[in-house]
Computed example of a mutant assay.
Amino acid sequence: MLLKKKLCIGALFCGILFFMFATHTIQKNNVLSTLVEAPRTTARSIIKNHTQSQAVTQSVQQHSCSCSTCVADLGISEWFDQRFDRKQQPYLTTEGKKVDPLALKWWLALQRSVDGTIEEVMKKMFTVISPPPVEELRQPSRCRTCAVVGNSGNLLQFKYGAVIDSHSIVFRMNKAMTLGFEQHVGNKTTHHFMYPESAVDLKPGVHLVLLPFKLRDLQWVTSALSTGEIKTTYVRVKERVEADKDKVIVVNPTFFKYTHDHWTEHHGRYPSTGMLAIVFALHLCDEVSVFGYGADLQGNWHHYWEDNKYAGAFRKTGVHNADFESEIISKLNTEGKIKLYPKVKKQANLKLYG
């Protein structure tokens, strides 16, 4: 009996010792587990922070210019990203790819043209004018602010002259003039869009941006800056034009087709001068402001330098779809890709003409 009692006490004592050992072991393992897990947690935090840092760095690296906002930046507007093709070459050069055959065929059918090939005409053209320099295109280290100035009479309702001139590049088009209208339209011009039938003389230092609607237009700019032999296209045109030969830019026919396909979406036979100028600016500039598009506040259609008795004359051109183009420009504004002036909540009667 005494032996059984001693055995029970011994077993109890052993049980207590085992429980104490087990508890100690568990606590020790928990401590070790914590010590092991802590570095893992720290490592995960370091990796996460590094990944986030890389993402921020990549975001900065992908910033397409040094402005606060850049037209070509991706991820801001899905609508814009679906249409904007950064690989497009806006103007003709002596280097790079040939004009796309499908785009060329479409372009040659726009207006009555002449015999010959575009390669032959371009070769002769670049013996008279200088190829545009590479720096004309966008550079990540630069901030190019551009004002695209249309010719609408609505410019007379505002005094945007100083705002327009504050841009690093100012686009004007066709017969646009500034003398006597400086407080409304400014007096700075860096690039002037024209075609033979709308040609004007330019001041030294201003880029002549030719919008060629036919092969004859390329021949005209060659002639107008040299021999003056071409006197007509489908109408009488300016035989010679004053402009710097080393500052001529000829818009690529492929760029016409790209604008027609991606932006005006086949509305109209081909895009208007005003629409082409804006899309051109989207590819050349980092920030784009647009002035002087549409009817004036009374709904009249006229250029700001003239009184037009026929206020509706510019609304329907027969080849452009002004209503659809105005929707695209308004959309560019609401998507934050351009700044449209005047800054009003609704762009009433916004139609385009050059």
Rank of each mutant, 00 (worst) to 15 (best):
G228P: 05
S77V: 03
T51V: 06
L282F: 05
P101V: 00
P196C: 10
H184V: 02
Y293W: 11
L350M: 14
V251S: 05
S113V: 01
G228H: 06
D201N: 10
Q62W: 00
P140Y: 00
E136A: 03
E136F: 04
C285A: 09
L202Y: 01
L92G: 06
G354D: 15
T41F: 08
H260A: 05
Y91R: 06
K105H: 13
L7H: 13
L74P: 09
Y293R: 07
K309F: 13
L282K: 03
A109S: 13
K257N: 12
R83H: 07
Q219M: 15
Q183V: 10
S66Y: 00
K87Y: 08
S272N: 09
C146N: 02
N333T: 06
V71F: 02
P132T: 01
E229R: 11
L108Q: 15
K6A: 09
L202K: 00
A281V: 01
T127N: 15
L202R: 00
V134Y: 08
T189N: 04
M20G: 12
D286I: 01
N300Y: 13
R216S: 12
V250M: 05
G150Q: 03
A43E: 15
S198N: 15
K28L: 14
T127P: 09
V250T: 04
Y234F: 13
L284C: 06
G228T: 04
Y195R: 10
I46A: 09
H24Y: 11
V288D: 04
Q347M: 12
A11T: 11
N321E: 09
